[in-house]
Simulated scan of single mutants.
Amino acid sequence: MQSPGPTEPFLGARDLFETEHDLDLPVEVTIREDPDSRTWTAHYDDRHVLNISRQAASSAMARPLALHEYSHMRRYEQSHPSHIQSTGEAITLALAGHTVERRTLTQCYQIANHMKDIYADDITLSVAPADRLVAFLESSLASALADRPVDPPTWKRLTPAADPNITAVNAAFALALLERHDCIPDDHRLYDLAHAAADDAAGVDLPAFKRRFRTLAADPDTSEYRRTLVEATREYAIRTGYAAD
């Protein structure tokens, strides 16, 4: 630990992770005071650094989050294309000749992160039950739908509404990940939430994105992974009408 904070979630996640996998490099945990800090890992030649907010580190999700980040570390050490290939280069290739808004570009990076997460969670779900992940994805999607844009807009809104199109892609990701590992029954509430998300986003083919995420090859080579990311980026930014020539 690089800063004071709870240690049990990280040690518990490590012990569970090591029942099936190993890391070659040591892991440092940095706890940040900003409650809005996202959980993420930085990779260096001699170590990995897991960054997490104190609020998240003290929550019931701390251990699952740590386990997820350890899985990202493992993918990086494996030199998996999803974790070492330049996302920026692939997105630039996908959008060559088109103009997109900064918001849309950010959302394209989010799609790439979903692909990374699927490969990380292929490891996570091989060593841990999916219960908390399912609950987290359900809660996140329900919250995004509750924050859908108001028509007409109201001045009372204090934060930007969730974008319906990326919410639909997020729903596709959640279903794809859980279906990929047979984690939910056919009548799970996530399907109703995803249907509502699809209704709000006429420009997004939710089943197509779900299929893209669910069928990601387990061990793609560099060119195959780049092609998959390029196609997903174009599907979102160009075919939904977000990009202009």
Rank of each mutant, 00 (worst) to 15 (best):
M1L: 14
P4I: 02
G5Y: 09
T7Y: 05
P9R: 05
P9L: 08
G12H: 04
G12K: 04
A13P: 04
R14Q: 11
L16W: 03
E18W: 01
D22N: 07
L23S: 07
L25G: 01
E28Q: 06
E28G: 00
V29K: 00
T30M: 14
I31F: 14
D34R: 08
D36E: 12
D46H: 00
R47W: 02
R47F: 00
N51D: 01
I52Y: 01
S53V: 06
S53A: 06
Q55H: 07
Q55W: 01
Q55A: 10
A57F: 08
S58Q: 13
A60C: 02
A62C: 05
R63C: 06
Y70A: 00
Y70K: 04
H72P: 07
M73C: 15
R75P: 07
S79V: 01
H80S: 09
S82R: 02
E89V: 05
T92D: 15
A94F: 05
L95E: 06
L95S: 05
T99S: 11
V100R: 09
V100C: 07
R102K: 14
R102M: 14
R102E: 15
L105T: 01
T106M: 06
Y109E: 14
Y109R: 13
Y109F: 15
N113Y: 13
M115A: 15
I118A: 06
Y119L: 01
Y119I: 04
A120Y: 13
V127I: 14
V127P: 00
V127R: 01
A128S: 15
A130W: 10
D131P: 01
L133I: 12
V134F: 12
L137Q: 12
S139V: 03
S140C: 06
S140G: 12
A144P: 01
A144H: 07
P149L: 06
V150L: 11
P153W: 11
P153E: 07
W155S: 13
R157Y: 10
T159V: 15
P160W: 11
A161N: 09
D163L: 11
D163Y: 02
I166W: 11
I166F: 13
V169E: 09
N170C: 03
F173N: 11
F173H: 14
A174V: 01
A176N: 10
L177R: 11
L177Y: 03
L177C: 06
R180Q: 10
I184A: 03
I184P: 09
D186V: 09
D187E: 14
R189I: 10
R189N: 09
Y191K: 06
D192H: 04
A194Q: 03
A196P: 00
A196G: 01
D200V: 00
A201C: 08
D205R: 05
L206A: 13
P207Q: 10
F209K: 01
K210L: 08
K210T: 12
R211W: 03
R212E: 11
F213A: 07
F213R: 04
T215K: 00
A217M: 14
A218P: 03
D219L: 13
P220V: 00
T222K: 02
T222M: 06
Y225G: 05
R226K: 10
R226S: 10
L229D: 10
V230N: 05
V230H: 13
V230L: 11
T233Q: 06
R234W: 12
Y236S: 09
A237S: 04
T240I: 11
T240L: 05
T240V: 11
A243L: 08
A244H: 14
